[in-house]
Every structure is written in structure tokens, then in C-alpha cells.
Amino acid sequence: MTDKVLLTGISGWIAKHIAIELLNSGYEVLGTVRSQNSLEKTKKTISEYVSTDKLSFVELDLLKDEGWNEAAKDCKYIIHTASPYPMKSSRNREALVPAAKGGTLRVLNAGIEANVEKIVLTSSIAAMFKRPNRTNPYNVGENDWSDTEWSGSNDYIISKTKAEKVAWELMESKGLKDKLTVINPGGVNGDALDDKENTSTKYVQLFLKGKYPMAPNFGILISDVKDVAKAHVLSLKNSKVNGRRLLIGSEVKKMLEISKIMQDAFPKYAKKLPKKEMPNFMLKLISYLDSSAKLMVPELGILMQTDTSYSEDLLGMKFKPAKDSIVDAGNSVIRLGLV
């Protein structure tokens, strides 16, 4: 009998890659969608890369209890990726929590009820690195948590942190911590499979369109979307990663370094890409008008450091160089006609 995986939010960019990895690995996949509108397009995209004979869909809402237990009951594993990730920040710091935290509880409780063997949760480095009084440079590791009370944490940071924390609390309270593995990517780059807009590739698109005359002065861990997908799938049957938080990515890159990689790879767009670093005061001024810039302000001038080799060792894989992920992202944005 084929092992069946409930994959939440299958229409998402990372989740589509996970679906392809699962199907290529012989799993049966039941993907959840919020509405029928995204079902056909998602299936079409996935079918261009792998047979969809073992792929089915169910319409479920993270904000509603109905249907989750039924969806999970015949599944051996759950991969929970569904969570809101908007481009713009909301003034309501709790705006995304109901879907992120409440949705996580619904999915995990359904998995517990169905006695699934393993749950893999998609979190983010966002749940780890946002906190006050950091050194410069500062280190981010498996035991670090973002401070949801800090003014430097926005609605997305708060939602990811609270959702991951409640997942650990629930599984530990049931004595099931070893049934949970959490994947924490950084800034996800790589191949966009279709033209559905997502926040990660949107930044690449804006860079190539010349929307950033100068690069903000901060850096982020670069994670390749295929590495992130593979990490989820490898975690299903790997007891070494039970109860662990896995940082995924190879290198931290500053925004100006990302721009330089793009200039070399895409000379046609070089004139539009930033050549200089933006003064910190300028980004602070912009942040009053552009909510997407607010997330960057607390990071200005300090450098993130992290060691992801423990994740590579536990998973038995090697993460792609940041340069390759950035070039793949640019190539796909250009191929899809998004610039």
C-alpha cells in the first residue's frame, strides 16, 4: 500500500515543490486547497513535472474545524505548509495569527486523532531571529526564538512564531514531540514553477524591474526551494530529525551581494539593479510609507550568522550554494514573463 501524505496549502510555491518531490518519491498525496479556484491550476503546474496519478485534492479552510479529521484519517504522514505570507505588513500585529496558529492546531489535532506516524511543519527563520539587543554580527540557531512582544516583530513574524510554538506545546503535552519535525527556511529562492504571485519571488521580480535604486543594508540566509522541499520529504521517515528544528540554507547574503549576483547572471537587467547600499536613514523614511520596508528596519547594519551543517548532517544532504538559488529565481521570473 502506498504511503499517503496530507499536504496542506498545496497551491503554495514551496508546497508545489513538496508535492512534486513526494510524488517522485512514490508517495500518494492529498493536497488541501482553500478554494476550487486554485485546484486546476495547481494540478496543471504539478503535472508538467511529474505524474499526478497519485494526487488528489480536498477543499479545507484553516479557519474552520470542518473536514480536517476526515482528511487526515487515511494518511500516514502530514506536511503542514499552509500559512499566510503577505507582501505588505498589517498594522494589526495579530492579523495573521488566527489562520497560522489556529490552522496549525486544527491540522495537528487531526493528525493526532488519526495517529499519523509523523508531522512535518513548515515554519521559518522568521520564528527565530527577530529579537532586541542582538550583537553584531549575531547568531541564529535551533534554540532561538523571535520575540513576539518586540516592536521590531511584525504580523508575519508574530504569526510564524506563535504557530510554531503552539505546535511544540501541543505535541509535548501529548507526549508526541518525537512525531514532529519543523523546517525553518530563510529567504527562499529558486525555481518558480508558475506565475502565481508569491512574496519570495516578488522581491526578485522587483529587483529586476529596477524598483530598488539602492540595496537595503542587511542580509538573510538564502534557502533553495528544492532543498526546502526535499528536507520536508526526507524528514518523514528519518528518525534522526524527530523533535528537531531544521534550519535550511547554505549562506547568508546581503542585499547588495544578491544584486551583484544578478548583475553578473543577467547583464540585460544590470542597469536596473542596485549598485550601492541604501543609507539606513533613507530606508527608515521609506518605511513610514511602505509597510514592506518596516520589516527591514530592525535589521539595518547588523549581520546574521548561522550554521546549518547540523541540518545537512541529520538529513544526509548538501544545500545548494546561494548563488545558484538566486540565479534560478531570476531565470524563472524572466522565463515566466514577470519582468
Rank of each mutant, 00 (worst) to 15 (best):
S51L: 00
D313K: 15
W145A: 04
I112D: 06
I220D: 15
K174L: 05
N143M: 13
V241D: 11
V188Q: 03
P84F: 09
K162F: 00
S11E: 13
V29W: 14
T8R: 11
A126T: 08
T308G: 11
F57L: 12
L336A: 03
N184A: 07
Y49R: 05
K64V: 08
F207H: 01
A322L: 01
E66R: 01
N238C: 07
Q305Y: 04
L283M: 10
S123R: 07
V166H: 10
L30C: 11
L338M: 09
K160W: 06
R106W: 09
I14Y: 05
Y310P: 12
A126P: 00
M317R: 03
P86Y: 11
E149Q: 14
S159L: 11
M282A: 13
W150N: 02
I125Y: 06
L303P: 02
V166A: 15
V107L: 05
R244F: 02
K237H: 03
E149T: 15
V252P: 15
N143H: 13
A329C: 09
R134K: 13
S51N: 01
L39M: 12
L246Y: 05
S325Q: 15
K276A: 09
S146V: 02
W13M: 15
W13A: 13
K260Q: 12
P274R: 11
L221V: 08
A100Q: 10
I222K: 08
E149F: 01
K318G: 07
E257C: 08
E28Y: 06
N139K: 15
G337K: 09
G102F: 12
I261W: 06
A329M: 05
L283D: 03
N136F: 14
M255V: 10
N69Q: 14
E299D: 12
Y77T: 04
L6P: 12
I334K: 07
V241E: 12
E172R: 07
L300T: 03
M128T: 10
K209D: 10
V166E: 15
E257P: 03
K162C: 02
I261G: 08
E299P: 06
L7E: 05
Y49F: 15
L206D: 11
K209E: 14
G210Q: 04
R91Q: 11
N154T: 01
L315I: 09
N92R: 01
L336W: 05
L193N: 06
T201D: 04
V252Q: 11
A19W: 05
S90E: 00
S35F: 00
G175S: 10
G31I: 00
W13Y: 14
K118D: 02
T161F: 03
A99E: 13
A215V: 06
N217I: 04
M255C: 12
K320P: 00
M171D: 13
K211I: 03
K318R: 12
E172D: 15
L303G: 08
I334D: 03
